[in-house]
């Protein structure tokens, strides 16, 4: 490791950083290890086996998990794509439009799903759906997810857009591009990393959500988090640990992928 200047080096900070990483990773690593335990008890270690992975895919509860996984994935895909589209349009309007009365209010409104505690959003959404007679189920989950994904998609897109100087749009107009061509050939490709980041963020946030989903899902419809929560209420069982480990690695793969994508993007930029 390169030498660090005197004033940047504080004794003990490295130790605390390592403590921090230990706390962050220990639970995940332990669960991963125990998911390979062949014992039906979570207490006793009996040796390595893929038994509980088999159980997740083919066991008694596998149908439930598959249905939940399908719900989670399909909702995450639709919610992230829809919210990213809404957020992209909003970001262009907010960042590229000239200042107008109510711009701050618009920003507050767009970031409202992040500011309001999740449990409050959940309560309000449930009350609203029941008041307008919206039947709780798959669709209500999807709608709720679209709403709270908007700001998560908006923030990286708006940040990227602020980093793109308007001069490129001037240049494109100057070179005879219509507004549509300007978006299609100049702004969209330049904005793409932000859009992808927003999409990914919205996707993960949707996949991750438990509280709001738990309120608006209605009877019989489960996503992976609500299914896992239901199962954990009776105690942690080894098949849940196997399922968790699968999800854990899916998440980590996603994040690593986006990290690597972002890095190659920025490297190309700085060359």
């Amino acid at each position: 490791m390169a030498k660090v200047a005197y004033v940047k080096n504080y004794p003990g900070f490295l130790t605390l950083t390592l403590v921090c990483l230990t706390v962050l990773y220990a639970p995940l690593i332990i669960v991963t290890i125990y998911s390979f335990n062949s014992s039906p008890s979570i207490i006793i270690w009996e040796g390595l086996s893929l038994r509980w992975y088999k159980d997740v895919f083919f066991g008694i509860e596998s149908a439930k998990f598959k249905a939940a996984a399908w719900n989670s994935l399909s909702i995450a895909v639709m919610a992230s794509v829809t919210s990213t589209t809404i957020a992209t349009a909003a970001a262009i309007g907010m960042v590229r439009g000239k200042a107008f009365r109510g711009r701050n209010a618009s920003f507050v409104l767009i970031s409202m799903p992040i500011m309001v505690p999740e449990i409050v959003t959940a309560v309000a959404t449930l009350i609203f759906f029941s008041a307008i007679g919206f039947v709780l189920g798959y669709t209500s989950i999807l709608v709720a997810h679209i709403v709270f994904c908007v700001p998560f998609a908006y923030l990286p897109i708006a940040a990227r857009l602020r980093g793109i100087e308007p001069v490129y749009e001037d240049a494109a107009s100057d070179l005879y591009a219509s507004r549509f061509q300007l978006f299609r050939y100049v702004l969209f490709p330049m904005l793409l990393p932000g859009i992808l980041a927003g999409l990914l963020l919205a996707f993960i946030v949707s996949l991750d959500d438990f509280i709001i989903t738990n309120f608006v899902k209605g009877a019989g419809v489960e996503t992976l988090p609500t299914a896992i929560f239901g199962a954990v209420k009776q105690g942690i069982k080894p098949n849940i640990m196997a399922l968790s480990t699968i999800l854990l690695f899916v998440s980590i793969c996603f994040v690593t992928l986006s990290y690597l994508l972002g890095r190659t993007g920025s490297q190309a930029k700085h060359k």
Partner: peptide
């Protein structure tokens, strides 16, 4: 509007589209 004026600009910091090649930039107009 600018895209209907038979006038072109060379910008101070060039504003070359970073995601296009040099040839694509030149051919854009």
């Amino acid at each position: 509007p600018p895209n209907r004026r038979p006038v072109n600009t060379v910008f101070q910091n060039y504003a070359l589209f970073p995601h296009m090649t040099v040839a694509e930039n030149i051919g854009f107009g």
